[in-house]
Design a protein around this nucleic acid. Sequence first.
DNA 1: CGCATGATTGAGGGCAATCAAACGTCGTGG
DNA 2: CCACGACGTTTGATTGCCCTCAATCATGCG
Lengths: 252, 252
Amino acid sequence: MQVAMAKRKTTPLKDFAPDGHHCSLDLKTTKLGMVSFFQDLEQDVLDEIVKRFTATHYREGDEIYYQGDPAHYLRVVVDGAAKLLRYTDEGKDVVLDILNPGSYFGSLKLLGSDVYTESAEAQSGCCILSIGLKDFREILQEYPSVGIAILEMSAEKLRSSQEQIKQLTTESVETRIANILLILTDKFGEVKEDKTLIQLPFSRKDLADMAGTTTESASRVMSNFQKEGIIETGRQWVAIKNIEMLRSIVEH
Amino acid sequence: MQVAMAKRKTTPLKDFAPDGHHCSLDLKTTKLGMVSFFQDLEQDVLDEIVKRFTATHYREGDEIYYQGDPAHYLRVVVDGAAKLLRYTDEGKDVVLDILNPGSYFGSLKLLGSDVYTESAEAQSGCCILSIGLKDFREILQEYPSVGIAILEMSAEKLRSSQEQIKQLTTESVETRIANILLILTDKFGEVKEDKTLIQLPFSRKDLADMAGTTTESASRVMSNFQKEGIIETGRQWVAIKNIEMLRSIVEH
DNA sequence: CGCATGATTGAGGGCAATCAAACGTCGTGG
DNA sequence: CCACGACGTTTGATTGCCCTCAATCATGCG
């Protein structure tokens, strides 16, 4: 017999200032300083660099750029979340990455020109800094440590991308989804009393597109997780109640 | 009725000097200059850089490094081919990349230390140059153009890795294999009279591990391709007879 | 309060994995 | 030079995971 308690199903997620919100210069500086490829710089140098970035606010669902667009900017998430995805001809979307504050995306094509090979969309309301590639190149020339740091971030991205390939070819849908929940918990987890809320709005379809499966399959897996008491979930949100059980699913 | 001609099924692949072979200094210099991140340098600068690399020859099947090993070197393929792969607990291998001459691999962890997250193996007999990360870092400091070039190569790798993810989640086994054949043709194709030989020894299992499928499925697909006259194949080798048909399979 | 959208659940089917067996090719040694 | 064995490849039969199609339910907003 089920617990008779009527669960609160209204969204527990915080609101990312739907509009009118702008990142202050202070916020920009603070957050940019946290981005790992700038973290070794002095405060005054950082101040100078920040000036070269432009802040833009996006509302949930806004398109940041579209695959095929000419690629002239490097971007950094300072607040909220963005997702990188590829739309396929048959209408199947593939989510390549969910970016949390401190992550860079966009183009690194410093020589010649290029077009984006993926699209970027605001997953929640978010604040994004962008910089023209020429400006960024000047920064690179002046501060070699930035180049080294970004090279490492880039290697790290490749690594997680390869991990994703491994998962897709060897793991079941259930395992892949469990793994994604762990990754999202790392990136967006907010510890509450008895659970960890993933501070990010995402639907079953988003989850399916990350796991390379269908909405229905994702829903089935999530239903089971909920029945087993591993998670608590509602429309567009998920909280982890038993992270150990998730880990053991992924390990096995 | 089949063509009555007895087809030559012995390997048409060239032999990569099974042992005793060493890359000459000249070969090293020539080949390294072809690697795109050094291609902008002057000849005398290149000569100096080459001295910092060590050449090693591997025989087909040799292990170059193993996942989990401490990662202290950056490597470049100068002759032959290497593959990057991950072994899983259940014994399923996942091939992440097949590297042709001019490709770099290994570690880019310039600060701190790291371990390899994948293994590298000689796919054919091959000659590999390696350089310690400290030395490489010095080169980076001295020649910023190298850093920029490698950053772009790194971005390109990420891109092809993401393409692979898209393929795995949206395309059939047949399409994925067709696509891999096209990629290998680009990297290792050698044009003959009426066909393009892929100058690389690789088995059905290798192909399966690249496509994220099983040996049996890969074999079935290849059998069909052969029946349809798209390819000609034997033990460990493949030649493309009708590349357009392969392209149309991938497009659709 | 009612509609739009997201989430769930069920039934059925298909692609590819698995299990199993035989065949062809190459290297080795008698 | 031929026979044998190892290994790569092929083909067949069967299973099962997950996709597809379809209908219903729930949530949140206007």
